[in-house]
Simulated assay, not measured.
Amino acid sequence: MSRITVCPVGTLAEGEAVKIDGPSEAIAVFNVQGVFYATTDRCSHGNASMSEGYVEDDGTVECPLHAARFCLKTGTALCQPATEPLATYPVTVEDGTIYVEVAEAEA
């Protein structure tokens, strides 16, 4: 596993998301009432950026393109048109900085 630095905690406002580069794909990092979650940035249904989606206080995000909703904790698709889950990544906060843990990129 490797660790990607996202940003200082104070720069990702509640209810917001940021897109970062992962080793193989973009990752969306979300702040839901001070709890941070990370998923793949691309919707499993279509070519939409989840970091541009609508973050809900119940820990879900709605795709900005087709209104599919996903659980940020598990990545589970909660409604149509999406049926496949989003990949999720562990998030840690240390010394006021948000980090995402990802698998090492294969050579």
Rank of each mutant, 00 (worst) to 15 (best):
A87D: 11
D58H: 04
G46A: 13
V9R: 14
T92I: 10
S44V: 12
T74F: 03
I98Y: 09
P64K: 13
V102I: 08
G22A: 00
T88M: 05
V32T: 01
A38T: 00
T5H: 10
T83E: 13
I4A: 12
A107D: 10
A107Q: 06
T11L: 08
I4Y: 11
I27V: 12
Q33Y: 06
E52W: 11
G75C: 02
L72H: 08
V29D: 00
N31F: 03
T97H: 02
I4H: 06
A105E: 14
T88V: 13
F70C: 06
T5F: 14
A105Q: 13
V29F: 01
D58I: 02
I20Q: 00
F70I: 05
T11W: 07
E14P: 04
L86C: 07
L86N: 05
P85M: 10
G46I: 03
V32A: 06
A77H: 12
T92F: 00
V35H: 14
R3P: 01
C79Y: 01
A105R: 12
V29R: 00
C79G: 02
T92C: 02
I98D: 11
L65T: 02
S2D: 12
A77F: 10
S2K: 14
Q33D: 15
D21Y: 03
S2P: 00
P8S: 13
Y89W: 11
Y99M: 03
Q80M: 12
P90Q: 09
E56F: 15
V18I: 15
T76E: 12
D57Y: 06
E56W: 10
Q80W: 07
L72V: 02
C71H: 07
A105W: 02
V93M: 09
S51F: 02
H45R: 00
E62V: 03
E104T: 10
S2E: 15
H45E: 00
G34P: 08
K73L: 07
P23S: 03
N31M: 10
E14S: 13
T11N: 11
E16Y: 08
P81R: 12
E25F: 09
L65N: 03
A105T: 05
V18K: 13
C71P: 01
F36Y: 15
V18L: 14
E62M: 09
V55C: 10
C79R: 06
A105S: 10
V91Q: 03
A17S: 09
R69H: 06
C71S: 15
A105N: 08
R69P: 02
V6A: 08
D57E: 15
M50W: 01
E94G: 03
P23G: 05
M1L: 11
T11Q: 04
H66E: 12
P8V: 06
T40E: 15
D58Q: 05
T60R: 15
T60V: 04
E84P: 00
V55Y: 10
S2V: 09
L72F: 01
G75K: 07
A67C: 05
Y89P: 01
D21T: 12
G10E: 14
G75S: 07
F36S: 07
G59M: 09
T97D: 11
S51G: 14
E101W: 09
A105L: 09
E84Y: 14
T83H: 08
R69Y: 00
V32Y: 13
G75E: 10
G59E: 13
E101F: 02
